[in-house]
Design a protein around this nucleic acid. Structure first.
Lengths: 96, 96
DNA sequence: TTTAGTGTTATCATATACGATAACCTTGGT
DNA sequence: ACCAAGGTTATCGTATATGATAACACTAAA
């Protein structure tokens, strides 16, 4: 069990999850995908069904084996009960 | 001249830009792309060169004629001097 | 240890993003 | 009116994202 797996597992526990939510962390796109699903308490198959696809494809996405399109990210997030937005940061300052 | 065009034009003026930066607005992905480039003071051709591609493709992207991949968004932003991040918002609350 | 649930990998087919090129349109300056 | 800069559109080729299916791996619980 590596750290990423550990983190995702930990999020399944309400207390951990609660503390975690308090933080504003920055991590990889993949981490964010997995975290959304974990927070939603869904399996890859659950998400796949909502997306009208298969769990293998969800796995591929979460394993970073592809370079997802914006709509894929949007749909995946929606299936997990999230909305997404592109946060852009100009060299130095943060912005719209 | 429609509103979107007007907004982009307005951003070229320093005073407008300055006031605009103060706001945290939320708009479409395309708006964000165009705004990044406008803020950077670059032409589509400028960005295209930095990306190693052609202005026509940049136009296609900004006109919403495609469904860009995450890496395309990242590269485009970098060419404009920005970094991007996927902001995920869980139904109701905001999160990582 | 077997089993069920979950996730992973491999492979193929199809849709589409992206690059290249060329022609065209729009607008501002002269 | 002309011109040049910036932006748009059309089209084609290639790479790759995504869907479908099937086989495999891992873990926890009985």
């Amino acid at each position: 069990m590596n750290f990423k797996t550990f983190k995702q597992k930990a999020l399944e526990h309400p207390e951990v999850r609660k503390e975690y939510d308090a933080l504003e962390e920055e991590f990889s796109l993949i981490d964010q995908l997995i975290t959304m699903r974990t927070k939603a308490g869904l399996t890859q198959e659950d998400v796949a069904k909502k997306l009208g696809t298969n769990k293998s494809n969800v796995s591929r996405l979460e394993r970073g084996k592809s370079n997802p399109s914006w709509s894929t990210l949007t749909k995946y997030a929606a299936a997990c009960g999230f909305t997404v937005r592109l946060e852009t940061t100009e060299n130095g300052r943060t912005s719209a």
